[in-house]
Simulated scan of single mutants.
Amino acid sequence: MAKLLYSATMSLDGFIAGPDHDMTWMTRLPDTGPHEVADSIWKQVGSLLVGHNTYYGNDPNEGTDAEGAFGGVWSGPQFVLTRTPPTSPVEGYTFLTDLAEAATAAADAAGDSYVAVLGAGIAADLLAAGLLDEILVFIAPVLLGAGTPLFRHPDGTEIALEEISSTTGPSPTIWLRVRK
Score class of each variant (00 low, 15 high):
residue 26 M to F: 14
residue 27 T to H: 01
residue 28 R to W: 06
residue 28 R to M: 09
residue 29 L to Q: 09
residue 29 L to N: 11
residue 30 P to E: 03
residue 31 D to K: 11
residue 32 T to G: 01
residue 32 T to C: 11
residue 34 P to Q: 05
residue 36 E to W: 08
residue 37 V to W: 09
residue 38 A to L: 14
residue 39 D to Q: 07
residue 40 S to F: 06
residue 45 V to W: 06
residue 46 G to P: 03
residue 46 G to N: 08
residue 46 G to I: 07
residue 48 L to A: 01
residue 49 L to A: 10
residue 50 V to M: 15
residue 51 G to V: 10
residue 53 N to W: 02
residue 53 N to K: 13
residue 54 T to P: 02
residue 55 Y to I: 09
residue 56 Y to W: 09
residue 57 G to L: 07
residue 58 N to C: 09
residue 60 P to Y: 14
residue 62 E to I: 10
residue 62 E to C: 00
residue 64 T to Y: 11
residue 64 T to M: 04
residue 64 T to D: 08
residue 65 D to C: 00
residue 65 D to R: 04
residue 65 D to E: 12
residue 69 A to M: 13
residue 70 F to D: 03
residue 70 F to Y: 15
residue 73 V to E: 12
residue 73 V to M: 10
residue 74 W to S: 10
residue 74 W to Y: 06
residue 74 W to D: 12
residue 74 W to T: 13
residue 77 P to I: 07
residue 81 L to F: 03
residue 82 T to C: 06
residue 82 T to V: 04
residue 82 T to D: 08
residue 83 R to S: 15
residue 85 P to T: 10
residue 86 P to C: 09
residue 86 P to T: 11
residue 87 T to V: 04
residue 87 T to M: 09
residue 89 P to Q: 13
residue 90 V to M: 07
residue 90 V to R: 11
residue 94 T to Y: 07
residue 94 T to W: 08
residue 95 F to Y: 12
residue 95 F to T: 09
residue 98 D to L: 09
residue 99 L to M: 01
residue 100 A to C: 01
residue 101 E to H: 08
residue 101 E to L: 10
residue 102 A to H: 05
residue 105 A to R: 04
residue 106 A to D: 07
residue 107 A to G: 12
residue 107 A to Q: 10
residue 108 D to K: 09
residue 108 D to Y: 00
residue 108 D to W: 00
residue 108 D to M: 00
residue 109 A to V: 00
residue 113 S to Q: 14
residue 113 S to T: 00
residue 114 Y to W: 14
residue 121 G to Y: 00
residue 121 G to E: 15
residue 125 D to F: 06
residue 128 A to I: 13
residue 128 A to P: 12
residue 129 A to L: 03
residue 130 G to D: 05
residue 131 L to P: 03
residue 132 L to W: 03
residue 133 D to V: 09
residue 135 I to V: 15
residue 137 V to E: 00
residue 141 P to Q: 09
residue 141 P to E: 03
residue 141 P to H: 10
residue 144 L to Q: 01
residue 144 L to D: 04
residue 145 G to L: 05
residue 147 G to M: 10
residue 150 L to W: 10
residue 155 D to F: 07
residue 156 G to S: 04
residue 157 T to Y: 01
residue 157 T to A: 15
residue 158 E to R: 14
residue 159 I to S: 11
residue 161 L to R: 08
